[in-house]
Design a protein around this nucleic acid. Structure first.
Lengths: 261, 261
DNA sequence: CAGTGGTCTAGACCACACT
DNA sequence: GTGTGGTCTAGACCACTGC
């Protein structure tokens, strides 16, 4: 709402003057949304330098401080990365620093098992109609086709994670097991460069289970080994679900680390 | 550092002028630390209204905007709570809104099982010398005495969580099973009012296990039920460890929910 | 050196809560 | 109305980067 768009705000004038309270949205939130739209539209791609705060302020006809507050929030949400003296960049899963931001499994003994590079073995990548639970998780129609990627991750030669990854067929057109196997980058980095999809946030649901036959085979464990089942939904810009993943973790020498604040 | 303390900064003058870079700390960080010290010292207790931004600005001889930035960070870390029109308050685990902020176990079917009030059964509360692992987790000497609280939480009559809670003996002097049983508030709320300890953040390590005899008894499960083991260290102000807790969760109809961002 | 983000200030006005 | 936090602006200077 806000009868006046940011572009119409005159300098020196308080924004949103005279607004009725239920429709109030701070200027910096509107700016944030405009930046978000540029990100989603691909105007600036992962790794790109975006315009400076003063440039954006001029474009949106607001003060630099207002742009700053919008960018502050986007930086805290890991959508942008600020680098003093250089500028502000679109965040990417390809940066060494933030690789595997979503992988919370850590070695009990931090000295051992550098988790990267891990052995990643793609079992298969198949195209099929979305099963009901997958369709629900990804907000797709049942008739929609999806990819299922099945893989095993090993650390120090020990198979530790077995997972099924479900992706919308249209968006990931051309995905193959071979392509996944050959690419040495993190999967989410490949998604950015090859399919224009950036994963922004995710939600995980954890429970303890006993393995089924498949899991026993791929993780080489007995049927009475307790395992951690991790169900993840990953979202791209504007909270669109883009990936559904069921992982089974072996947690005898690794654990899932979570900070509560 | 900063040869000049906040109290010596003259208005209209940029702070820290002429500082050598390795020792640089922004003014608002110094203010944040001062506020933190007042919180830790108990000058303002959980639930209290703290002085307004202008009052604090006057006290610290900085501008209101600088105080604002310090408070912004403390609010984001859930140490303070801002309420427009009313003021800024010291956060507390007693508020309905943030109760059980650290309990991530949620029902698979949200309709059922309101998790509060849960049945809380205290099994015992014993005083003993800190075992090595407890002493390490709480950064105590081995000779130190600690309390061990053992309890079971049930939801809808189903025993779901069994946990051992370890607390430093001196700080929690006077803790008894009876006192824990009679108090109807969340445990962390009681810690605030009765012992002056506010839990600020925590870290959890999760793994899947099979139950030992004790767990089988208290959760009424068979030895081949996979369970979620949650190890938690809780910290009070300035990252002092104050509680070590080992929980075992039954996750057949509940799950551990985690947001990744 | 110029350009970027980072900090600090001051002053204005808005939205909200209480009296 | 008064006082609180919330938003917005403008201008200054600092810290870092790279030419």
């Amino acid at each position: 709402m806000n009868a006046s768009t940011p572009l119409e705000n005159a300098a020196h004038q308080p924004a949103n003057a005279g607004l009725v309270s239920p429709f109030f949205s701070p200027l910096y939130q509107q700016i944030k949304e405009l930046v978000l739209q540029s990100l989603q539209a691909g105007e600036w791609k992962p790794g790109d330098l975006i315009p400076s705060e003063f440039e954006l302020a001029a474009r949106f006809k607001v003060s630099q401080g207002t742009v700053r507050k919008a960018i502050d929030e986007l930086a805290k949400e890991h959508l942008l990365v600020r680098r003093q003296g250089k500028g502000t960049f679109v965040a990417t899963h390809a940066e060494q620093q933030v690789q595997f931001r979503f992988l919370k499994l850590k070695p009990d003994n931090p000295g051992l098992g550098q988790q990267w590079p891990a052995d990643r073995h793609i079992i298969d990548c198949t195209r099929l109609r979305a099963p009901p639970d997958v369709a629900r998780a990804l907000a797709l129609r049942l008739s929609y086709t999806v990819f299922r990627v099945r893989r095993v991750l090993s650390f120090d030669g020990v198979p530790t994670i077995f997972e099924d990854i479900w992706l919308p067929g249209a968006t990931f057109k051309g995905l193959t097991a071979e392509r996944l196997s050959k690419d040495t980058r993190p999967m989410y980095a490949m998604f950015e460069s090859d399919f224009g999809i950036r994963m922004v946030r995710a939600q995980e649901r954890l429970r303890a289970i006993l393995p089924n036959e498949d899991v026993c085979t791929f993780l080489k464990v007995s049927t009475n080994t307790a395992l951690l089942r991790v169900e993840r939904i990953s979202f791209t810009y504007h909270d669109s679900p883009m990936e559904w993943r069921i992982g089974v973790y072996l947690t005898d020498t690794w654990h899932y680390l979570n900070d509560l604040s």
